[in-house]
Design a binder for these strands. Structure first.
Lengths: 110, 110
DNA sequence: AACATTCATCGTATTATTACAATAAATAAA
DNA sequence: TTTATTTATTGTAATAATACGATGAATGTT
């Protein structure tokens, strides 16, 4: 069917998956890393930086924006993007809770 | 096209995306959480726990195994799965480096 | 106003992912 | 050996994701 059965899972599980999915493409990872590296906001040079076509970058930016991880600000003819600090921190909280589960209890039976 | 242009990105970026992608489905999140919760290994009751069909679970387990995040051990007619501790720790290292980028330098111009 | 620049959106081809029925493979139990 | 149990694999239908050309929208420049 190709349709994720969201209703079978908890809100938390769906939320983790949603964040993870947006990081599940190297272009979006590259975009975010670039936004972190450049301490001011950045616009269309992401196209040059990442090396994909402009509509493709725009599409990836849209997904990052929809999840709230970045903000976009129109500045004249270009658009300035940056990390959404508060939301990034909130996301990190959720992802860390998942990633940092206690391994010491694990039996490693295999 | 629908084909990720892996060659445009660094190994690190592709690796981050690959780990993130496997967490990008709530069923796999649920499977991993269950493997963490149960301090011994677990087999086919993941089907009951998660609520998807057996071939679907088997497919998700395969992906987690291929990335090295879980191990599977045949025990009689059933298979015992558990977290691969070392690889999980290594993955966490890589993901943390990405998630924990320094926000304090960010200008928040938008 | 006319043109240029930058980004978003639309349309669409291609590939990937998800889910499951059917079936095979492997082992245990009778 | 036959039967049951458990998991993996195969095949396939349906949906999602990726990428980009073409085009539109918005603003700046001349």
């Amino acid at each position: 069917m190709g349709l994720t059965k969201t209703e079978k899972f908890t809100d938390k599980q769906n939320q983790i998956a949603q964040f993870a999915k947006v990081f599940g493409h190297p272009a979006r990872v590259a975009i975010l890393q670039h936004l972190f590296r450049i301490d001011s906001c950045v616009c269309g040079d992401l196209v040059l930086e990442v090396g994909l076509a402009q509509p493709t970058i725009s599409q990836h930016l849209k997904e990052l924006k929809q999840l709230g991880l970045i903000k976009g600000n129109v500045e004249g003819t270009s658009v300035c993007y940056c990390i959404h600090k508060e939301n990034w921190t909130a996301m990190k909280e959720i992802m860390s809770e998942f990633l940092d589960q206690d391994l010491s209890l694990q039996q490693d039976c295999c």
